[in-house]
Design a protein around this nucleic acid. Structure first.
Length: 639
RNA sequence: GCCGACAUAGCUCAGCGGUAGAGCAGCUGUUUCGUAAACAGCAGGUCCUCGGUUCAAAUCCGAGUGUCGGCUCCA
């Protein structure tokens, strides 16, 4: 079933505030989010209409309040910093922002005084009054006030009105107290109706998102209907900070970053154990599903990238180097090289599908400002695979892939959601091929019964794709897996063929797929999702044996050996500390099971595991216990 | 890359012109303990790097690097 409703950005939850949801001004809204070159995926006959575009977040009450708070923020800033030029101030998920061109950078102290000033405005309970005004008059007013950004918006509005003839040459202002702002509304009745709020941060933001335009200062804030909701939101933020994988990565000794290689993780033994466990699980799935693993060079001559199209379209993101007058690049993707293996001999229609998986080390030269822990890196490894199929096999293969996604995510208790991303503006290949690929994907999604949304123009430059999203334990959305159906880059550019029943060469279709995506990123997300308390099967240390006194250490080592013989990852805490302290340490390391060993247990050769949840399980014989835990771990359950 | 902030012991942080501190971790000793922190002592730092101002710089200024919050980009 095709989701024919317009993809509604408001429904997207993201892990950070994204200011594109709802915008105050027509042009801003148009620029930010409206697909201009639509196809039948979208059914929005009224898209572009003034009514829709001007809706400033007031579709619901809380949106109207957030937007109203942005106005009060602007009032306060204008009051405290005369001469401030206003940008735009929309409602966003969980709050609002306003962009300002200020005489000097804002500090955290400024936020406090701005908040104070805002409280005054709210106490005064100014009414929000809507004023209709002719565009020309509005422009004159804005110009008189030196509000150059508003003038720009009004000029654009006027241009559209003239060009389209469908806009009344009238616009609206909203006034409250001394403040007036170009705005469609709606707003709450008065400033006194605004709930508890808090200003959160200041950040730079280009005017209209264009890096060639001036950088404005964006103030982010949050506002809620009740103190309780505000507190809950702030708690969620604090909780997210506690779960931050960069923080837990240090605490749990999983990985570190160093300035000798910005954007690339150093994996410590425990992190590497997590890594290898995930990799082994995926390899097991892949072998079971008919994949064959390959391995290709990291350092590759530019002619390969010229052939694939990366050199032109992706070159800025590639690390290049030169030797003996020849230019090479570190590979940013595995795909072009998989074709070399494919082409190493003639392929028959009977050979397909061919499924090559590869855990290749990739380098992408991400801009320095975008690097962020494990979620945005310059070096990473994907659980990557390239599948070559006949056209008649495509639908079945995609269905199988959707099944793989569901299986793999069930190991972590994650629910995948699907999004179908179509042709971007900057794309390779014949538009007819794109149309065909998109139709095939939609058909496969439908027959797999997948529930999905459509993301227009969000495909890669060589393929439409299915992106898979999950919501983590804090309700944050993450993009994870991707399935890309490539009729262009690999098959056409590398002239791939197979010989059909009639002895004629035919073009295969290539599918690029990664289910974890980058292992780095996936582990980072898992750390945050589980707050570091990995499921038993993933935990770097699955159990710690805790001898009560020194005389119990030998027995503890024996028990550990019994458990290791069952493939469990077990450590013995033979330190000088007291048992209580050893428990505390294991607890802080989020070790799933602790086995306290004293005279009683050793006598009976039993142990009673304490879980990290603080539960005490009944005593069990060593062999039985080891077998039980090993069975649980092998089941790959999400707890 | 751009805007802003930050960078002090392994970790978390204090000090903010007079030459470096705490807690935890580590080491040593005492303790041998029954389900989330035993006690004592010791050791540990080119205060990110380079340059400048100053009698004197961790502290003020500039540049660089890295990190963080965003913008932008994004397979």
């Amino acid at each position: 079933m095709v989701s024919r409703r317009r993809v509604e950005p408001r429904e997207e939850r993201t892990s950070r505030p994204v200011g594109r949801e709802v915008l105050c001004f027509q042009e801003a809204a148009t620029m930010a989010d409206t697909p201009s070159n639509d196809d039948d995926i979208l059914d929005a006959p009224d898209r572009g209409s003034a009514e829709e575009l001007l809706d400033a977040g007031g579709q619901d009450e809380i949106g109207a309040m957030r937007h109203s708070t942005a106005h009060v923020l602007a009032e306060a800033v204008l009051d405290l910093f005369p001469g401030t030029k206003l940008g735009i101030g929309p409602a966003i998920a969980d709050g609002f922002y306003y962009d300002f061109d200020l005489p000097r950078p804002l500090t955290p102290d400024d936020l406090e005084s701005i908040e104070t000033r805002m409280h005054e405005s709210m106490a005064a309970d100014h009414r929000f009054v809507r004023k209709e005004i002719a565009l020309d008059d509005a422009r004159a007013v804005a110009e008189g006030q030196g509000q150059i950004y508003k003038v720009e918006i009004l000029d654009d509005l006027a241009a559209r009105a003239i060009a389209g003839g469908d806009l009344p040459p009238v616009t609206s202002f909203y006034e409250h107290g001394p403040f007036s702002d170009l705005c469609k509304g709606p707003h709450v009745e008065s400033t006194g109706r605004i709930g508890p709020f808090k200003l959160l941060s200041v950040a730079g933001a280009y005017w209209r998102g264009d890096e060639k335009r001036p950088m404005l200062q964006r103030v982010y804030g949050t506002v809620w209907g009740s103190q309780e909701e505000l507190d809950q939101y702030l708690w969620r933020r604090a909780e997210a900070k506690k779960r931050d994988h960069r923080r837990l990565g240090v605490q749990l000794d999983l990985f570190s970053f160093h300035d000798v290689s910005p954007g690339s993780a150093f994996w410590h033994p425990k992190g590497q154990r997590v890594w290898r466990t995930l990799e082994a699980a995926m390899r097991e799935l892949q072998e079971r599903r008919g994949y064959e693993e390959i391995s290709t060079p990291i350092l590759v001559h530019k002619k390969l990238w010229q052939q694939s199209g990366h050199w032109d379209l992706y070159g800025d993101n590639m690390f290049r180097l030169e030797t003996e007058g020849q230019e090479f690049s570190l590979k940013p993707m595995n795909c072009p090289e998989s074709t070399i293996v494919y082409r190493s001999r003639l392929r028959s229609y009977r050979d397909l599908p061919i499924r090559y998986n590869e855990y290749g080390r990739l380098h992408r030269n991400e801009r320095s400002g975008t690097l962020s822990g494990l979620t945005r890196v310059r070096q990473f490894i994907q659980d990557d695979a390239h599948i070559y199929v006949r056209p008649d096999q495509l639908a079945a293969e995609i269905e199988a892939l959707l099944g793989e996604v569901r299986e793999a995510y069930s190991w972590f208790g994650l629910e995948p959601r699907f999004a179908f991303a179509t042709k971007p503006d900057k794309a390779l290949g014949d538009p007819a091929l794109w149309e065909r690929a998109e139709a095939l994907i939609r058909g496969a999604l439908d027959s797999a019964g997948a529930n999905y949304v459509v993301k227009p123009k969000d495909g890669t430059f060589y393929a439409p794709k299915i992106d898979i999203y999950i919501d983590d334990a804090l309700g944050r959305e993450w993009q994870m897996a991707t399935i890309q159906v490539d009729l262009v880059m690999l098959p056409e550019r590398f002239d791939l063929t197979y010989i059909d029943e009639a002895g004629q060469p035919q073009r295969p279709i290539a599918i690029h797929r990664a289910i974890y995506g980058s292992l780095e990123r996936f582990i980072g997300i898992l750390v945050e999702h589980f707050a570091g308390a990995f499921p038993l099967w993933v935990a770097p240390v699955q159990a710690v044996v805790i001898p009560i006194a020194d005389r119990h250490v030998d027995a503890a080592r024996e028990l550990a050996a019994v458990m290791r013989a069952r493939g469990l990852r077990v450590e013995v805490d033979a330190s000088d500390g007291r048992m209580q302290n050893k428990i505390r340490v294991a607890q802080e390391q989020k070790v799933p099971y602790m086995m306290v060993l004293g005279d009683r247990e050793i006598e009976a050769r039993t142990a009673s595991p304490r879980t990290r949840a603080g539960e005490q399980e009944p005593a069990e014989g060593w062999e039985k216990l080891a077998t039980r835990l090993a069975t649980m771990a092998a089941a790959r359950r999400p707890d």
